[in-house]
Amino acid sequence: MKRMKQISAMLSALGLLLIAASGCTGKGAAAGKYAVGIAQYAEHGSLDNCRKGFLAGLAEEGFTEGKNLKVRYENAQADGGTANQIADSIAAGRTDLIAAIGTPMAQSAFRAAGKADIPVIYTAVNDPVAAELAREDGTPTGNVTGTSDRLPVEKQLEMIRTILPDAKKIGILYSTSEVNSISTVQEYRDAAPAHDFKIVESGISVAADIPLAADQLLAKVDCLCNLTDNTVVSSLPLILEKADRKGIPVFGSEIEQVKIGCLAAVGLDYYELGIQTGKMAARVLKGEAKAGEIPFKVCKEASFYGNTAAAKNLGISIPEELTGPAGEMFDRIEEHQGKS
Protein backbone atom coordinates (compact mmCIF):
# COMPACT_ATOMS: atom_id res chain seq x y z
CA MET A 1 0.00 0.00 0.00
CA LYS A 2 2.75 2.36 1.02
CA ARG A 3 4.61 1.64 -2.18
CA MET A 4 1.53 2.39 -4.25
CA LYS A 5 1.18 5.75 -2.53
CA GLN A 6 4.76 6.62 -3.21
CA ILE A 7 4.53 5.71 -6.85
CA SER A 8 1.34 7.67 -7.30
CA ALA A 9 2.98 10.66 -5.63
CA MET A 10 5.83 10.37 -8.12
CA LEU A 11 3.41 10.16 -11.01
CA SER A 12 1.43 13.19 -9.91
CA ALA A 13 4.65 15.16 -9.51
CA LEU A 14 5.52 14.19 -13.07
CA GLY A 15 2.08 15.24 -14.20
CA LEU A 16 2.40 18.64 -12.53
CA LEU A 17 5.67 19.25 -14.29
CA LEU A 18 4.04 18.39 -17.58
CA ILE A 19 1.08 20.66 -16.99
CA ALA A 20 3.41 23.50 -16.05
CA ALA A 21 5.32 22.89 -19.23
CA SER A 22 2.32 22.60 -21.49
CA GLY A 23 0.83 25.84 -20.16
CA CYS A 24 3.41 27.70 -22.20
CA THR A 25 2.78 25.92 -25.48
CA GLY A 26 0.71 27.25 -28.36
CA LYS A 27 -2.75 28.20 -27.25
CA GLY A 28 -5.56 27.97 -29.76
CA ALA A 29 -5.39 30.88 -32.19
CA ALA A 30 -8.46 33.03 -32.74
CA ALA A 31 -10.51 32.75 -35.92
CA GLY A 32 -8.68 34.10 -38.97
CA LYS A 33 -5.35 33.61 -37.23
CA TYR A 34 -2.83 31.04 -38.29
CA ALA A 35 -0.25 29.19 -36.24
CA VAL A 36 2.99 27.92 -37.76
CA GLY A 37 5.71 25.96 -35.98
CA ILE A 38 9.24 26.33 -37.34
CA ALA A 39 11.62 23.51 -36.42
CA GLN A 40 15.23 24.07 -37.41
CA TYR A 41 17.90 21.37 -37.16
CA ALA A 42 20.96 23.48 -36.36
CA GLU A 43 21.88 27.08 -35.72
CA HIS A 44 23.79 28.03 -38.80
CA GLY A 45 24.08 31.02 -41.18
CA SER A 46 22.44 29.33 -44.17
CA LEU A 47 19.65 27.74 -42.17
CA ASP A 48 18.97 30.99 -40.31
CA ASN A 49 18.65 32.74 -43.69
CA CYS A 50 16.19 30.04 -44.76
CA ARG A 51 14.05 30.79 -41.75
CA LYS A 52 14.11 34.55 -42.30
CA GLY A 53 13.29 34.07 -45.98
CA PHE A 54 10.47 31.71 -45.08
CA LEU A 55 8.81 34.33 -42.88
CA ALA A 56 9.37 36.97 -45.57
CA GLY A 57 7.76 34.69 -48.17
CA LEU A 58 4.74 34.15 -45.91
CA ALA A 59 4.52 37.91 -45.32
CA GLU A 60 4.49 38.58 -49.09
CA GLU A 61 1.42 36.36 -49.31
CA GLY A 62 -0.33 38.17 -46.50
CA PHE A 63 0.66 36.11 -43.47
CA THR A 64 2.51 38.48 -41.18
CA GLU A 65 4.00 37.36 -37.91
CA GLY A 66 2.32 39.09 -34.98
CA LYS A 67 -0.66 40.21 -37.08
CA ASN A 68 -2.48 37.17 -38.40
CA LEU A 69 0.30 34.64 -37.91
CA LYS A 70 1.56 33.07 -34.72
CA VAL A 71 5.05 31.62 -35.06
CA ARG A 72 6.69 29.16 -32.71
CA TYR A 73 10.36 28.59 -33.39
CA GLU A 74 12.48 25.74 -32.00
CA ASN A 75 16.06 24.71 -32.78
CA ALA A 76 17.46 21.20 -32.20
CA GLN A 77 21.10 22.33 -32.02
CA ALA A 78 22.10 19.47 -34.34
CA ASP A 79 20.89 16.82 -31.85
CA GLY A 80 18.78 14.03 -33.35
CA GLY A 81 17.02 13.14 -30.08
CA THR A 82 16.07 16.76 -29.45
CA ALA A 83 14.86 17.06 -33.05
CA ASN A 84 12.40 14.22 -32.42
CA GLN A 85 11.13 15.76 -29.21
CA ILE A 86 10.78 19.19 -30.81
CA ALA A 87 8.77 17.68 -33.64
CA ASP A 88 6.51 15.88 -31.12
CA SER A 89 6.10 19.01 -29.07
CA ILE A 90 5.16 21.21 -32.03
CA ALA A 91 2.82 18.58 -33.48
CA ALA A 92 1.07 18.28 -30.12
CA GLY A 93 0.37 22.01 -29.90
CA ARG A 94 -2.25 23.75 -32.01
CA THR A 95 -0.53 24.42 -35.28
CA ASP A 96 -1.75 24.71 -38.88
CA LEU A 97 1.57 23.88 -40.48
CA ILE A 98 5.08 22.79 -39.55
CA ALA A 99 8.07 24.26 -41.35
CA ALA A 100 11.10 22.00 -41.01
CA ILE A 101 14.59 23.22 -41.88
CA GLY A 102 17.29 20.61 -42.54
CA THR A 103 17.01 16.93 -43.52
CA PRO A 104 16.83 15.18 -40.10
CA MET A 105 14.38 17.80 -38.85
CA ALA A 106 12.19 17.31 -41.93
CA GLN A 107 12.14 13.56 -41.28
CA SER A 108 11.31 14.00 -37.59
CA ALA A 109 8.56 16.49 -38.41
CA PHE A 110 7.15 14.23 -41.12
CA ARG A 111 6.87 11.37 -38.63
CA ALA A 112 5.42 13.47 -35.79
CA ALA A 113 2.99 15.41 -37.98
CA GLY A 114 1.83 12.30 -39.79
CA LYS A 115 -0.03 11.14 -36.70
CA ALA A 116 -1.84 14.45 -36.30
CA ASP A 117 -2.14 15.03 -40.07
CA ILE A 118 -0.50 18.45 -39.97
CA PRO A 119 1.07 19.55 -43.28
CA VAL A 120 4.87 19.77 -43.26
CA ILE A 121 6.80 22.17 -45.52
CA TYR A 122 10.52 21.54 -45.52
CA THR A 123 13.51 23.41 -46.85
CA ALA A 124 17.27 22.89 -47.01
CA VAL A 125 16.74 19.20 -47.73
CA ASN A 126 19.34 18.27 -50.31
CA ASP A 127 17.75 15.10 -51.60
CA PRO A 128 14.07 14.67 -50.65
CA VAL A 129 13.89 11.40 -52.61
CA ALA A 130 16.76 9.80 -50.67
CA ALA A 131 15.19 11.08 -47.45
CA GLU A 132 11.92 9.35 -48.44
CA LEU A 133 10.02 12.61 -48.31
CA ALA A 134 9.27 12.37 -52.03
CA ARG A 135 9.04 9.66 -54.66
CA GLU A 136 11.26 9.41 -57.73
CA ASP A 137 8.79 11.45 -59.79
CA GLY A 138 8.84 14.31 -57.26
CA THR A 139 5.41 13.65 -55.73
CA PRO A 140 5.31 13.68 -51.91
CA THR A 141 5.18 10.49 -49.85
CA GLY A 142 2.64 12.03 -47.50
CA ASN A 143 1.26 15.38 -46.44
CA VAL A 144 4.71 16.88 -46.91
CA THR A 145 6.50 19.00 -49.51
CA GLY A 146 9.11 21.73 -49.73
CA THR A 147 12.25 22.91 -51.41
CA SER A 148 15.59 21.26 -52.01
CA ASP A 149 18.89 23.07 -51.67
CA ARG A 150 20.73 20.88 -54.15
CA LEU A 151 23.84 22.70 -55.27
CA PRO A 152 24.26 23.75 -58.90
CA VAL A 153 27.26 21.45 -59.38
CA GLU A 154 27.59 21.81 -63.17
CA LYS A 155 27.54 25.61 -63.04
CA GLN A 156 30.06 25.61 -60.21
CA LEU A 157 32.46 23.43 -62.21
CA GLU A 158 32.06 25.67 -65.28
CA MET A 159 32.83 28.70 -63.13
CA ILE A 160 35.95 27.09 -61.62
CA ARG A 161 37.14 26.21 -65.14
CA THR A 162 36.64 29.81 -66.27
CA ILE A 163 38.64 31.25 -63.36
CA LEU A 164 41.35 28.54 -63.32
CA PRO A 165 41.84 27.35 -66.92
CA ASP A 166 44.78 25.10 -66.00
CA ALA A 167 43.54 23.50 -62.77
CA LYS A 168 43.40 19.70 -62.68
CA LYS A 169 42.45 18.61 -59.18
CA ILE A 170 39.67 19.95 -56.98
CA GLY A 171 39.81 19.07 -53.29
CA ILE A 172 36.60 18.57 -51.31
CA LEU A 173 36.47 18.32 -47.55
CA TYR A 174 33.24 16.90 -46.11
CA SER A 175 31.93 15.09 -43.04
CA THR A 176 30.99 11.47 -43.42
CA SER A 177 28.04 11.95 -41.08
CA GLU A 178 26.24 14.50 -43.27
CA VAL A 179 24.11 12.82 -45.86
CA ASN A 180 23.73 16.04 -47.88
CA SER A 181 27.49 16.26 -48.33
CA ILE A 182 27.86 12.64 -49.33
CA SER A 183 25.34 12.95 -52.14
CA THR A 184 26.87 16.25 -53.31
CA VAL A 185 30.36 14.75 -53.40
CA GLN A 186 28.95 11.96 -55.54
CA GLU A 187 27.48 14.54 -57.93
CA TYR A 188 30.85 16.26 -58.19
CA ARG A 189 32.57 12.95 -58.83
CA ASP A 190 30.12 12.19 -61.65
CA ALA A 191 30.27 15.64 -63.24
CA ALA A 192 34.01 16.38 -62.91
CA PRO A 193 35.42 14.35 -65.87
CA ALA A 194 33.26 16.27 -68.37
CA HIS A 195 35.03 19.44 -67.25
CA ASP A 196 38.42 17.77 -67.21
CA PHE A 197 38.70 17.88 -63.42
CA LYS A 198 39.60 15.20 -60.93
CA ILE A 199 37.96 15.27 -57.50
CA VAL A 200 40.15 14.53 -54.48
CA GLU A 201 37.97 14.06 -51.44
CA SER A 202 38.69 13.87 -47.77
CA GLY A 203 36.05 12.69 -45.32
CA ILE A 204 36.20 13.73 -41.68
CA SER A 205 34.09 12.67 -38.71
CA VAL A 206 34.49 15.56 -36.27
CA ALA A 207 35.56 19.20 -36.50
CA ALA A 208 38.82 18.31 -34.74
CA ASP A 209 39.91 16.28 -37.80
CA ILE A 210 39.78 19.32 -40.06
CA PRO A 211 43.27 20.84 -39.56
CA LEU A 212 45.07 17.59 -40.41
CA ALA A 213 42.73 16.70 -43.25
CA ALA A 214 43.02 20.21 -44.72
CA ASP A 215 46.83 20.10 -44.65
CA GLN A 216 46.94 16.76 -46.42
CA LEU A 217 44.36 17.80 -48.99
CA LEU A 218 46.04 21.14 -49.74
CA ALA A 219 49.27 19.34 -50.60
CA LYS A 220 47.49 17.43 -53.38
CA VAL A 221 45.13 19.83 -55.13
CA ASP A 222 44.97 23.00 -57.26
CA CYS A 223 41.94 24.42 -55.51
CA LEU A 224 39.36 23.56 -52.86
CA CYS A 225 35.63 23.48 -53.36
CA ASN A 226 33.57 23.89 -50.23
CA LEU A 227 30.09 22.40 -49.85
CA THR A 228 27.33 23.34 -47.42
CA ASP A 229 28.63 20.77 -44.93
CA ASN A 230 27.72 22.09 -41.46
CA THR A 231 30.86 20.85 -39.71
CA VAL A 232 33.26 22.03 -42.40
CA VAL A 233 31.56 25.39 -42.86
CA SER A 234 31.96 26.19 -39.18
CA SER A 235 35.71 25.65 -39.55
CA LEU A 236 35.94 27.50 -42.85
CA PRO A 237 38.06 30.41 -41.52
CA LEU A 238 40.71 27.90 -40.46
CA ILE A 239 40.68 26.21 -43.88
CA LEU A 240 40.82 29.59 -45.64
CA GLU A 241 43.83 30.62 -43.60
CA LYS A 242 45.70 27.41 -44.39
CA ALA A 243 44.82 27.66 -48.10
CA ASP A 244 45.82 31.32 -48.15
CA ARG A 245 49.27 30.49 -46.85
CA LYS A 246 49.79 28.06 -49.72
CA GLY A 247 48.19 30.37 -52.29
CA ILE A 248 45.45 27.88 -53.11
CA PRO A 249 42.03 29.27 -54.06
CA VAL A 250 38.95 28.09 -52.13
CA PHE A 251 35.57 28.15 -53.84
CA GLY A 252 32.40 28.37 -51.80
CA SER A 253 28.85 27.21 -52.35
CA GLU A 254 26.78 30.11 -51.12
CA ILE A 255 26.87 33.84 -50.46
CA GLU A 256 27.89 33.72 -46.77
CA GLN A 257 31.02 31.71 -47.58
CA VAL A 258 32.14 34.24 -50.20
CA LYS A 259 31.61 37.07 -47.74
CA ILE A 260 34.07 35.51 -45.32
CA GLY A 261 36.79 35.00 -47.91
CA CYS A 262 36.07 32.26 -50.44
CA LEU A 263 37.20 33.38 -53.89
CA ALA A 264 33.91 32.78 -55.66
CA ALA A 265 30.80 30.63 -55.73
CA VAL A 266 27.91 29.78 -57.96
CA GLY A 267 25.45 29.12 -55.27
CA LEU A 268 22.09 29.40 -53.74
CA ASP A 269 20.77 32.32 -51.88
CA TYR A 270 19.21 30.62 -48.88
CA TYR A 271 17.09 33.67 -48.18
CA GLU A 272 15.56 33.33 -51.66
CA LEU A 273 15.08 29.60 -51.05
CA GLY A 274 13.27 30.49 -47.83
CA ILE A 275 10.99 32.94 -49.66
CA GLN A 276 10.04 30.26 -52.20
CA THR A 277 9.31 27.87 -49.34
CA GLY A 278 7.26 30.52 -47.52
CA LYS A 279 5.12 31.04 -50.62
CA MET A 280 4.56 27.30 -50.84
CA ALA A 281 3.46 27.29 -47.20
CA ALA A 282 1.10 30.20 -47.93
CA ARG A 283 -0.64 28.16 -50.64
CA VAL A 284 -1.25 25.38 -48.13
CA LEU A 285 -2.47 27.78 -45.43
CA LYS A 286 -4.87 29.45 -47.87
CA GLY A 287 -6.23 26.03 -48.75
CA GLU A 288 -5.31 26.36 -52.45
CA ALA A 289 -3.56 23.00 -52.39
CA LYS A 290 -2.63 20.29 -49.93
CA ALA A 291 1.03 19.78 -49.15
CA GLY A 292 0.68 16.22 -50.38
CA GLU A 293 -0.37 17.48 -53.83
CA ILE A 294 2.55 19.86 -54.45
CA PRO A 295 5.76 18.33 -55.84
CA PHE A 296 8.96 19.49 -54.14
CA LYS A 297 10.96 22.23 -55.86
CA VAL A 298 14.65 22.49 -56.54
CA CYS A 299 15.95 26.04 -56.43
CA LYS A 300 16.89 26.65 -60.07
CA GLU A 301 18.26 30.15 -59.90
CA ALA A 302 21.93 30.15 -58.99
CA SER A 303 23.88 33.37 -58.81
CA PHE A 304 27.55 34.17 -59.04
CA TYR A 305 29.28 35.61 -56.01
CA GLY A 306 32.88 36.77 -56.06
CA ASN A 307 35.25 38.29 -53.57
CA THR A 308 37.72 40.73 -55.11
CA ALA A 309 39.74 41.03 -51.90
CA ALA A 310 40.34 37.27 -51.87
CA ALA A 311 41.20 37.39 -55.58
CA LYS A 312 43.73 40.15 -54.96
CA ASN A 313 45.40 38.14 -52.19
CA LEU A 314 45.79 35.18 -54.55
CA GLY A 315 46.87 37.29 -57.51
CA ILE A 316 43.94 35.98 -59.54
CA SER A 317 41.54 38.10 -61.56
CA ILE A 318 37.90 37.14 -61.85
CA PRO A 319 36.92 37.24 -65.55
CA GLU A 320 34.41 39.91 -66.62
CA GLU A 321 32.03 37.35 -68.09
CA LEU A 322 31.34 36.01 -64.60
CA THR A 323 30.98 39.28 -62.74
CA GLY A 324 28.30 40.43 -65.21
CA PRO A 325 24.93 41.90 -64.21
CA ALA A 326 23.70 38.82 -62.32
CA GLY A 327 26.76 38.52 -60.14
CA GLU A 328 27.35 40.03 -56.74
CA MET A 329 30.83 41.12 -55.76
CA PHE A 330 32.32 41.74 -52.34
CA ASP A 331 35.43 43.84 -51.93
CA ARG A 332 36.39 42.88 -48.41
CA ILE A 333 36.68 39.78 -46.23
CA GLU A 334 34.28 39.77 -43.33
CA GLU A 335 34.87 38.26 -39.93
CA HIS A 336 33.25 34.86 -39.58
CA GLN A 337 29.94 35.55 -37.86
CA GLY A 338 28.11 32.29 -38.21
CA LYS A 339 27.89 30.03 -35.25
CA SER A 340 27.26 26.41 -35.88
Binding site: L17, L18, Q77
Partner: peptide
Amino acid sequence: IFGSIVYKTCVAAAISLGMAASDLK
Protein backbone atom coordinates in the same frame (compact mmCIF):
# COMPACT_ATOMS: atom_id res chain seq x y z
CA ILE B 1 13.15 3.25 -16.22
CA PHE B 2 11.50 6.06 -14.28
CA GLY B 3 14.78 7.98 -14.45
CA SER B 4 14.75 7.81 -18.23
CA ILE B 5 11.16 9.05 -18.42
CA VAL B 6 11.95 11.89 -16.02
CA TYR B 7 14.99 12.81 -18.13
CA LYS B 8 12.89 13.05 -21.27
CA THR B 9 10.24 15.00 -19.36
CA CYS B 10 12.91 17.54 -18.45
CA VAL B 11 13.91 17.94 -22.10
CA ALA B 12 10.26 18.23 -23.18
CA ALA B 13 9.61 20.78 -20.44
CA ALA B 14 12.67 22.78 -21.51
CA ILE B 15 11.41 22.77 -25.10
CA SER B 16 7.90 23.77 -24.05
CA LEU B 17 9.11 26.59 -21.84
CA GLY B 18 9.86 28.35 -25.10
CA MET B 19 13.27 29.69 -24.16
CA ALA B 20 15.80 30.81 -26.76
CA ALA B 21 16.99 27.82 -28.76
CA SER B 22 20.55 28.09 -27.54
CA ASP B 23 19.43 27.87 -23.89
CA LEU B 24 17.74 24.48 -24.29
CA LYS B 25 20.57 22.45 -22.80
